[in-house]
Simulated scan of single mutants.
Amino acid sequence: MEPFEYVVVLTSLILGLGIAQILTGIADIVSHWKAIKLSIPHTIYVFVVFFLHIQEWWINYEYSKVIDVWTLQLVFGILIFPILLFIQARMLFPTGLRSSDTDMDLYFEDQWRWLYSIGAMTVVVSIWHNILITNIPLTEQIQLFVLLVAYLVFVVFNIRNKATHIVFLGLQLAAWIIYIVTEESVL
């Protein structure tokens, strides 16, 4: 077994757990359809976080081409991103003590600052990975800096306007759809 294969098993496991959280949350909503009050920003963010999981799994293959020496510190650095994604996926839906929550608008209003804070952390980690692992210069990461600033503006200024969240998340979803349609890399 190659070092990359050894590491990718763990990252894939964490990403798979995150995807399972998302799919379980969606299944819970579907199975309690009549009792659930859906939320547009919540629903959009579910898709954004799902696409992030798939994109991270896809991008992980690049590491097999750019990393020659695998150290424990490097592996921990790589694991940060999927761990943050898993935490987001876990927090997307009411669980545990909140498992009886049925109003996704109220749930999202209560959770969005945490979700966006973790979203900002994923952007910082992504920039860090791009610089240290794949050698992408800062000048080619402008879109990530814009996303980071947007997350921070929402969190710092506690922007609660639902329409503003819908626009912000809708733009992210549109960007992900464009990425998926236009991405040409192959395994």
Results as ranks from 00 to 15, higher is better:
Phe81Tyr: 07
Phe81Leu: 12
Pro82Tyr: 05
Pro82Gln: 07
Pro82Trp: 05
Pro82Ser: 09
Ile83Gly: 09
Leu84Asp: 04
Leu84Ser: 04
Leu85His: 08
Leu85Gln: 13
Leu85Pro: 12
Phe86Thr: 04
Phe86Cys: 03
Phe86Ala: 01
Phe86Gln: 04
Phe86Ile: 01
Phe86Glu: 01
Phe86Asn: 06
Ile87Asp: 00
Ile87Trp: 04
Ile87Met: 05
Ile87Cys: 03
Ile87Lys: 02
Ile87Gln: 03
Gln88Met: 12
Ala89Tyr: 10
Ala89Pro: 11
Arg90Tyr: 13
Arg90Lys: 10
Met91Leu: 15
Met91Lys: 11
Met91Tyr: 11
Met91His: 12
Leu92Pro: 08
Leu92Ala: 07
Phe93Ala: 09
Phe93His: 05
Phe93Asp: 02
Phe93Lys: 02
Pro94Thr: 01
Thr95Trp: 07
Thr95His: 08
Thr95Asp: 06
Gly96Ala: 08
Leu97Ser: 09
Leu97Arg: 00
Arg98Pro: 15
Arg98Asn: 14
Ser99Val: 07
Ser99Arg: 12
Ser100Ile: 01
Ser100Gln: 05
Ser100Lys: 10
Ser100Asn: 08
Ser100Tyr: 03
Asp101Ile: 08
Asp101Tyr: 11
Thr102Asn: 11
Thr102Met: 10
Asp103Trp: 09
Asp103Glu: 04
Asp103Pro: 12
Asp103Arg: 10
Asp103Met: 09
Met104Ile: 00
Met104Gly: 04
Met104Ser: 06
Asp105Thr: 04
Asp105Lys: 10
Asp105Tyr: 08
Leu106Glu: 11
Leu106Ile: 00
Tyr107Pro: 14
Tyr107His: 12
Tyr107Ala: 07
Tyr107Asp: 05
Phe108Trp: 12
Phe108Pro: 13
Phe108Leu: 03
Phe108Val: 02
Phe108Tyr: 08
Glu109Gly: 12
Asp110Trp: 11
Asp110Arg: 13
Asp110Pro: 12
Asp110Tyr: 13
Gln111Tyr: 04
Gln111His: 13
Gln111Val: 06
Trp112Lys: 14
Trp112His: 14
Arg113Met: 13
Trp114Gly: 15
Trp114Lys: 15
Trp114Glu: 13
Leu115Val: 03
Leu115Thr: 05
Tyr116Gln: 15
Tyr116Pro: 15
Tyr116His: 15
Ser117Trp: 08
Ile118Ser: 13
Ile118Leu: 15
Ile118Trp: 12
Gly119Tyr: 03
Gly119Leu: 02
Gly119Lys: 04
Gly119Gln: 06
Ala120Glu: 05
Ala120Leu: 11
Met121Glu: 02
Met121Tyr: 09
Met121Thr: 03
Met121Arg: 06
Thr122Met: 03
Thr122Asn: 02
Thr122Ala: 00
Val123Leu: 07
Val123Arg: 01
Val123Asp: 03
Val124Ser: 02
Val125Gln: 04
Val125Ile: 08
Ser126Asp: 07
Ser126Thr: 03
Ile127Asp: 03
Ile127His: 02
Trp128Gly: 04
Trp128Leu: 09
His129Val: 02
His129Thr: 00
Asn130Glu: 10
Asn130Val: 09
Asn130Gly: 14
Asn130Lys: 15
Ile131Leu: 14
Ile131Arg: 10
Ile131Met: 07
Leu132Asn: 11
Leu132Gln: 08
Leu132Tyr: 13
Leu132Ile: 07
Ile133Trp: 05
Ile133Tyr: 07
Ile133Val: 11
Thr134Leu: 05
Thr134Phe: 05
Thr134Lys: 10
Asn135Lys: 08
Asn135Trp: 06
Asn135Asp: 08
Ile136Gln: 09
Pro137Met: 00
Leu138Phe: 05
Leu138Ser: 00
Leu138Asp: 00
Leu138Cys: 03
Leu138Pro: 04
